[in-house]
């Protein structure tokens, strides 16, 4: 439904991908772990290899004292509600991660 307004009401998104250059925002959600109260929002290059991305997460989640970094090697990844088996050497983009995509896993 369009906004009811006194004149044409059309504005660009304030968080559109082009504002981030070669990067994009990625949401990462450790489902079922309330220690991280909400999914995290990150800015990553679209061309970043998936394996490097997982490497960053292995550092990030050490904020949970019970986290075992290697556990991320055997999780089921879900990108935007699709179960996937990413290729670690391919880019995040090639693995199906878009701007503001939700990457989720549970341990």
């Amino acid at each position: 439904m369009p906004v009811v307004a006194i004149s044409e009401y059309k504005f660009p998104s304030k968080s559109r991908q082009e504002l981030y250059g070669d990067d994009q925002l990625v949401h990462v959600w450790w489902k079922g772990n309330p220690w991280f109260v909400a999914a995290g929002c990150f800015r990553f290059p679209k061309a970043m290899p998936w394996g490097d991305f997982v490497g960053v997460l292995k550092g990030f989640y050490t904020a949970d004292p019970d986290f075992v970094p290697d556990s991320l090697d055997s999780v089921q990844w879900v990108i935007d509600d699709q179960e996937v088996t990413p290729d670690p050497s391919a880019s995040m983009e090639a693995n199906g991660v878009g701007h503001k995509s939700l990457v989720q896993f549970s341990v």
Binding site: P34, V37, A39, C41, F60, A63
Partner: peptide, 28 residues
């Protein structure tokens, strides 16, 4: 403990997305 990152925010209320599914307090 402080969260080392930045949270996903709700596009409308702008609160970090920490609210959970009805009847399931562990799943955001």
């Amino acid at each position: 403990y402080f969260n080392p990152g930045l949270p996903q925010l709700c596009q409308v209320c702008q609160i970090p997305m920490g609210f959970t599914e009805p009847g399931d307090p562990m799943t955001q």
